[in-house]
Design a protein around this nucleic acid. Structure first.
Length: 180
DNA sequence: CGGCTGATGATCT
DNA sequence: GATCATCAGCCGG
């Protein structure tokens, strides 16, 4: 699931306009994974992780940022994929207006930046990403020949599992250089 | 470049 | 009251 998403496109339709980006980096969170938000069972906040595969789970973290996930298993199973980075494809001006004056490479590089640049917030939590309303995922146009794997970033539990995936040929990827 | 830190608020215990 | 799947800004090399 996490590797399936690499190279797919996220389309976000907002009142201000449409933005499109190509996913370059993901992290998997499993159903029995101490690092996953679903680990201690379903709550009001994480309920979307338990929806059928392909629904949005958006949460607010550190007082400033949203993170965008895609639920990854059957209904009732709390698993998902955090989308950590993407490359802008369309709606460049809108993404930049949301993100401010940063390097092009940093527009959507990192989960909080990605959500900000694409205008994703808790309003999108629970949306079905396969039906093409407001926010959806479109298939890859081209295959991604080189997918790298590393440990996940920024977590305090299960730090050693190799569940972070990224397009090794893209510069639009987050994390320290040694992790690429 | 890498390393560190403060901001900031929802969520859960 | 602690925790947190982050980021921008600042510092030193």
């Amino acid at each position: 699931m996490a590797t399936c998403l690499i190279g797919c496109r996220i389309v976000s339709d907002a009142p201000e306009g449409r933005t499109v980006a190509r996913i370059t980096e993901t992290e998997a969170y499993l159903w029995n994974d101490a690092a996953a938000h679903s680990f201690r069972g379903r709550t009001l906040r994480n309920a979307s992780l338990f929806l059928e595969r392909g629904h949005a789970y958006v949460y607010f973290i550190y007082g400033n940022h949203y993170c965008f996930n895609v639920s990854g298993d059957r209904a009732g199973v709390g698993a998902g994929v955090l989308v950590r980075a993407a490359e802008p494809l369309d709606g460049f001006e809108l993404i930049r207006a949301r993100r401010g004056m940063v390097r092009d490479l940093d527009l959507l590089r990192g989960p909080g930046r990605l959500a900000q640049g694409l205008g994703i917030s808790r309003e999108h939590d629970g949306l079905d990403l396969t039906t093409g309303k407001r926010l959806w995922i479109a298939p890859r146009v081209r295959p991604v020949p080189n997918v790298g794997v590393t440990v996940r970033i920024g977590i305090t539990k299960e730090c050693e599992l190799p569940l972070r995936f990224y397009d090794a040929d893209s510069a639009h990827v987050s994390g320290p250089k040694r992790l690429r």
